[in-house]
Write a protein that binds this DNA or RNA. Structure first.
Lengths: 207, 207
DNA sequence: CTTATGAGAATGAACGTTCGCTCTCACAAG
DNA sequence: CTTGTGAGAGCGAACGTTCATTCTCATAAG
C-alpha cells in the first residue's frame, strides 16, 4: 500500500521500506481488530513476513504503535500548519475541519483515531505523543485566532484558549462519531459547521 | 460503593447486589487498564471474589462490559430526559453539558467513555447499544430544538439534525479530552460553551 | 569465509473459562 | 435438642488457548 520512494541502503529491500511495509500491515490489522485485538502473527501475515523478520525491524508491538502514532502526528501537523498562512482563521478552521474529515473517510486510519485516544489514556508513551499533538495544534489555532482578533475577524471578548479546546474537542468528537456510524456526509456537514464556527468566533454584529 | 435497596431473594447476599458488586469492581479495573487490559483475575481481586463465584453471576467478560454499557446508557438517558421538560433547549443543552462533564469528572467512568467508543467500533453488541444511545439522545435533542424553533428560540434556518450531531460530537469530544488531560475546568468552560451554543442556535439578531 | 537477513518452530507467561470440591445454612426427621 | 440432608454459594487449581517474543538454523550476498 505504501511504497518507499528513496533507497536507504543497498540491501535487497531497504530497512526503511521494510519498516513502512510493517507499519502499513499493522495499520490494516489494528483498524480491523484494535491495538490489543490484533496479534503479531496477524501483522506478520498481513506483511507477508515471519515474526523473526519483523522483530528485526521493530523491537516490540508497542514500538509499532508508537510509529503509527508518530505518523498520525505528522499528518495532523500538516493540516494545522495551514492555519499559519491563513488569512481568515475562521474560514480556515472550517475548511481544515471538513477536509480532515473527508481525508479520514477515505483512509484506513479512521478507526485508529479513537483507538489511539483510548490507548493514550493508559500508555504513557502514546499519551505524551497525543498531548504534544494537542499542544502544537492548540498553539497554532490560538495564534491564528489571536491574529484574527487583532484584525477584527474574531470576537475580542472570547476566551480564546477555551474556545480552541472546544473546537479541537469538536473535531475529535466528529472523527469518532464518523468512525462509528453517523450517516453524516461532509457535504451536509460543511454549511452547518461553517455556521457554527462563524457565529461562535465572529464579533457580534454591531453594524 | 453501590448498595442495593430492595431485597431480591432471601439468600445471604442477593444476586443483584452481587452483580452490582462485580460491576463496580469491573468499572474500577476497566478504568485502570481498559476492557482488554484488565484481566478477570484482577476483577475478581477487586471484587474480593473467586472466579468461580464471579462466573455464577456473569457468563463472560463481555457480559460484564455489556452490563456497564447498559448502565451508562441509563445514566445518559436520565440526563437527556431533562431536555423534554426544558423551557429553553439552548440553555438546557448548556446546563446539561456542563453538569454531565462535572459528573464525569467525579466519577470512575470518565475514562470508560473513550474505551466504550473504541470497543463499539469492533464489538457489535456494544456498538448496537452505543447507537441506540445516540439515536435516543438525538431524538430528544432534535425534538427540543424543533420546539425551540417553533417558539422563536432557535434559528429556523438551521439544519437541526446536523446541528444535533455536531453538539453530540462536541460532547463526546469534550469528555474524551477531559479524560486525557483536562486543564479545562467546568467553571472556565461554562461561559464559553454557553456563548457557543447561544450564538449557534439563536436566531440571528434581527432586532 | 563472513555477515546480514529471514524463516518458523519453540517458549513461557497470561488469558478467559471450567470443574470438582468445600462450606454454609435452612429445615425436616428423629 | 440433635442430627441428617440438600441445595445454593463460593473457592481456587487447572485447562486449553493465544499471545508477544526469542532461538536456532538456513540461505544468500559480498
Amino acid at each position: 500500500m505504501v511504497e518507499v520512494a528513496i533507497a536507504d541502503k543497498p540491501g535487497s529491500a531497504s530497512a526503511s521500506s521494510q519498516r513502512q511495509r510493517i507499519v502499513a500491515a499493522a495499520i490494516a490489522c489494528f483498524a480491523r481488530s484494535g491495538f490489543h485485538g490484533a496479534s503479531m502473527q496477524a501483522i506478520c501475515a498481513e506483511a507477508a513476513m515471519s515474526p523473526g523478520a519483523l522483530y528485526r525491524y521493530f523491537p516490540s508491538k508497542e514500538a509499532i504503535i508508537s510509529a503509527i502514532a508518530e505518523a498520525e502526528h505528522e499528518a495532523h501537523a500538516a493540516f494545522f500548519a495551514r492555519m499559519e498562512a491563513a488569512d481568515d482563521p475562521v474560514e480556515a478552521l472550517t475548511s481544515i475541519g471538513v477536509e480532515a474529515l473527508q481525508a479520514l473517510l477515505a483512509s484506513p486510519t479512521n478507526t485508529l483515531q479513537v483507538e489511539t485516544m483510548a490507548e493514550a489514556i493508559r500508555n504513557p508513551a502514546i499519551r505524551a505523543g497525543f498531548q504534544r499533538n494537542c499542544d502544537e495544534a492548540a498553539a497554532m489555532i490560538v495564534a491564528a485566532l489571536r491574529r484574527g482578533q487583532a484584525n477584527g475577524q474574531v470576537d475580542p471578548d472570547l476566551d480564546i484558549e477555551v474556545a480552541c479546546q472546544l473546537v479541537m474537542a469538536l473535531g475529535d468528537g466528529l472523527s469518532a462519531h464518523q468512525a462509528l456510524d453517523s450517516g453524516l456526509s461532509p457535504e451536509r456537514l460543511r454549511p452547518v459547521l461553517q455556521t457554527l464556527l462563524r457565529r461562535f468566533f465572529r464579533p457580534p454584529s454591531t453594524s
